[in-house]
Amino acid sequence: MTAPEPVERTPGPAWARRRAAARRAWGEFTRHRAGVLGLGVLVLVIALAALAPLITDADGVDVTRATGGRLEPPGGRYWLGTDESGRSVLLLVLWGARISLLVGLSATLLSIAIGTVVGILTGHFGGWGSALLMRLTDFFLVLPSLVLAIALSTVIGPGVGTIVLAIGVTSWPSAARLVRAQTLGVEARPYIERSRALGGGHLHVIGKHVLPGVLPLVLVNTTLAVGTAIVAESTLAFLGLGDPVAISWGSMLRSASNSGAVTAGAWWYLVPPGLAIAVVVLAFTLCGRAMESVLNPRLRER
């Protein structure tokens, strides 16, 4: 007897529809020049940050191996000058992007995950448990998130993980509110009632209907929240609540302030990290606005 020939599995119509929808979304996204520009800037910055150990010498960020002069102005040897220890500011900006982007993305994912879970649970189940969660959300929403992050960082101790945790656990209420409103809108649709009438349980309704309905909003909110998280990380690092050894854009601004770069007129030590923060935050905002226009038909019609 001969072995049966393997049957080639072809993708079903659902996958074909998803690929077609993804192509349409990408085509709509490319129509937004600002969004494409922001995406290009983000790809460039992320690539430079990821390849920093390969394209630069890690010894250059070591204080004990610095070869430049103190606050040396830009020139042929150091394009963006040096810091108070004689290290290249350009090299510090490249390596600082790694910590700033890592903390911003990690804190955003943590806050969005908490907000999504809380928003879906409160919108789907209701009852006294949901009311209690929403009162807790209102409590965190009223208090300034930066003040809470500073207090939490002070209690736990300085460090990169502390900043991620501080930003993540204090910036989720806005995401929870948005996801809850979207969940209530999805729950009111007729196919949810049909799914329940056919025996669909809570996990089926949430996994098959509610979660796909709120994912576009979560994706857009994630893109827009990364910029806020990067600014918060820079603020906490500037206040000295980050890892004193790690190099980030916020710690560079703190070092520039403490070393007297302002009074010495060393603009090349202050402008590059500040400009990097502004450019990356603007790039994330442009991408988020473009994605919001793509995923929201009302905005697309406007």
Results as ranks from 00 to 15, higher is better:
R196N: 03
F284L: 06
L101Y: 02
L80K: 11
N296P: 00
F139L: 14
G227H: 08
I112A: 12
T154N: 15
V179Y: 09
L133I: 05
E187V: 15
V279L: 13
A278Q: 10
L109T: 07
A49P: 00
G12F: 03
V118D: 04
L253R: 04
S171W: 07
T222D: 03
T285V: 14
L286D: 05
T183F: 15
A166G: 06
V45H: 00
S234V: 07
L110M: 13
L198K: 03
V220R: 03
G119I: 10
F139S: 11
A113D: 05
L275F: 06
L236G: 09
G127T: 10
L184W: 11
T108A: 04
L165R: 01
V205W: 13
S100A: 06
R189H: 12
G288E: 14
W128S: 13
I163F: 00
L178I: 15
A232V: 05
P4S: 10
L215P: 02
G200N: 04
S293A: 13
A225D: 04
V61D: 00
R70S: 05
L203F: 15
A113W: 09
L71E: 00
R196M: 06
E193Q: 13
V214C: 01
F29W: 10
A166P: 08
R194F: 15
G129M: 04
W26M: 11
G76F: 06
L219G: 05
L48Q: 02
G68S: 01
T30V: 12
